[in-house]
Design a protein around this nucleic acid. Structure first.
Lengths: 230, 230
DNA sequence: TTCATAGTTCGACAATAGACGAACTGTGCT
DNA sequence: AGCACAGTTCGTCTATTGTCGAACTATGAA
């Protein structure tokens, strides 16, 4: 019968531990740079470079050059679906390393994605920003990045974020970042990162060193919802 | 984050060409013996033996010993789903080797599965046999195999199948075989094989040497439907 | 300009694992 | 019993490929 082509070479691409680490790190849907991925994969930069080339060549990843950085992300939803399916099977087979019980919901709710906030809360925030006209998300302008409105600039300034400082940086202030697990966007970019660190310095949230969970205190979460009228 | 365990080793298991061939051969849901799989994989029996051991050990395949044969099949639906997902991605990436156009429907309709008939027609037949009380399919009796009823014995005898002869063989007369693509069962076992060869000797159907398609002549298909009141 | 850092290319090394020949066990058939 | 055949085990060979050190290019910052 021989359905489809070469499923073996495709599978082999995921079959290397370093590459698998890279891919799972990218499942969150965020773009990561080559060096970040190197540390995720646990190998040197040279090795990572070769792996990334193979993954891009194999259609698994897409690259975006930004200054001297290269941002890698999963190429499409099918890749993400494949990885999920694979994780599904792997979980059945191997003795599960991490208990998937109570921690999973926390991860869905709020987690760190590179340097900004992801998860249900982040999606809610992003939608709220747009609904309130703080940000406009027009794919056809501003290189596809979301744009901070005047109203938004005032709002975040009042909140304690130094927007003027962010504007001086090369990095785009706003970036939307796709969360594969829910197929929804949340806010990345300079503003996204600044917001997360602001939450931390106010004591609303705390990031874990071991995993990517961001733990909000009860009052912290309430204050966040109140501040952004969610 | 490190979701789930070891997706790399799981993927690596599919990442070998020989093993991938074995798995795709088994996607039809039929059980195949080690030597049959060896020819599918294009490697020797020894090599196949080692691959099969790894696949069973990895939870991909389940084995069933029958006399001096060992029948291998995919362990569960998740494996099949994973393989489909993989084929999906692989098709996007590599230039598709086989044109998936006109031939596919023929394959869905009627194909060879080991030595018996599979595909839409086979599923229809199987359902018809049960509806007419020729076979009863009780998972809790007869070791889980379908059972040929008295009525069924008479019917197939009249049709020209030597049931007494089949009963003398070690091989179970009836076996249900799951077709992953439609998640439905069809008839395998001694009777399934005997029926297919009967169809061929009557000139109703013809098997292809190149692929697994079974081609029914127009009158052959009509006669089949009439004979089994489908 | 000079320095730092992101990422790549090249070459060498080492480990893995897939392949087969040959010899073995076990089941079934006559 | 003797033969045939399904499947396995063992040992060896070979090819692949993942790894890193070192040297290179390119971008940005001082």
């Amino acid at each position: 019968m021989k359905l489809g082509p070469d499923i073996s070479s495709t599978a082999a691409l995921i079959g290397d531990p370093a590459r698998a680490n890279i891919l799972t790190a990218l499942i969150s849907g965020c773009a990561l740079t080559a060096t970040e991925l190197a540390s995720e994969a646990g190998v040197t930069k040279q090795t990572t470079s070769s792996h990334l080339a193979k993954l891009v060549d194999g259609g698994f990843l897409s690259v975006e050059k930004q200054g001297r950085h290269k941002y890698y992300r999963l190429a499409n939803h099918e890749i993400a679906a494949l990885l999920e399916s694979l994780a599904n099977v792997a979980a059945d087979i191997a003795p599960k390393r991490v208990r998937t019980g109570p921690k999973e919901p926390a991860l869905r709710k709020a987690r760190r994605c590179y340097d900004h906030l992801a998860g249900d809360i982040a999606v809610k925030m992003f939608d709220g920003f747009i609904a309130q006209g703080l940000i406009v998300n027009d794919r056809n302008s501003n290189q596809g990045f979301p744009t901070l409105t005047v109203k938004g600039t005032e709002f975040f300034d009042r909140f304690g974020i130094d927007i003027k400082n962010l504007k001086n940086q090369k990095r785009p202030i706003c970036r939307s970042c796709l969360d594969w697990s829910v197929r929804r966007h949340h806010l990345a970019g300079g503003l996204g990162a600044a917001l997360l660190s602001e939450f931390e310095s106010r004591g609303w949230a705390k990031r874990s060193a071991k995993n990517r969970i961001i733990e909000f205190s009860q009052t912290g979460e309430q204050k966040l919802l109140a501040a952004f009228l969610l």
